[in-house]
Simulated assay, not measured.
Amino acid sequence: MLDVLTVVTAVAALLLAAWCGWAAYRDQPTKDWHFIGMAVVTLLALVQLVVGIVQLARGEKPEQGTTVFVAYLLGSFACVPAAGFLSLGERTRWGSLTVAASGVVLAVLEVRLFDIWGG
Score class of each variant (00 low, 15 high):
97 L>Q: 11
95 G>I: 01
7 V>R: 12
96 S>E: 07
77 F>M: 11
16 L>S: 06
49 L>C: 03
101 A>G: 15
73 L>E: 04
70 V>S: 00
103 G>R: 07
101 A>F: 11
35 F>Q: 13
23 A>P: 03
1 M>N: 03
78 A>D: 04
48 Q>R: 14
95 G>R: 01
98 T>G: 11
86 L>S: 10
40 V>I: 15
113 L>P: 02
48 Q>A: 07
55 Q>I: 00
17 A>R: 07
101 A>M: 14
98 T>Y: 02
78 A>W: 12
114 F>R: 11
48 Q>H: 11
61 K>A: 13
63 E>M: 11
56 L>G: 01
7 V>Q: 09
15 L>Y: 04
3 D>S: 13
36 I>G: 05
105 V>G: 02
8 V>R: 11
96 S>I: 02
88 L>Q: 13
98 T>A: 15
102 S>R: 07
109 L>M: 15
55 Q>L: 14
16 L>V: 04
3 D>K: 13
115 D>T: 10
103 G>I: 06
106 L>I: 02
86 L>Q: 13
72 Y>H: 14
19 W>P: 00
40 V>K: 02
23 A>G: 12
69 F>W: 13
6 T>M: 13
67 T>E: 14
11 V>Q: 09
101 A>R: 12
117 W>G: 01
9 T>P: 03
24 A>R: 07
73 L>R: 07
37 G>I: 00
24 A>S: 14
54 V>S: 00
99 V>W: 02
113 L>S: 02
30 T>S: 12
104 V>N: 08
101 A>P: 05
26 R>Y: 03
22 W>K: 07
104 V>W: 09
12 A>N: 08
34 H>F: 01
46 L>S: 10
3 D>W: 11
56 L>A: 00
96 S>N: 07
66 T>N: 03
88 L>E: 11
7 V>A: 10
2 L>F: 11
72 Y>W: 13
9 T>G: 01
98 T>W: 07
40 V>N: 02
57 A>I: 09
66 T>I: 13
115 D>C: 04
22 W>Y: 12
32 D>Q: 12
82 A>T: 15
110 E>T: 06
43 L>Q: 05
38 M>P: 02
26 R>I: 05
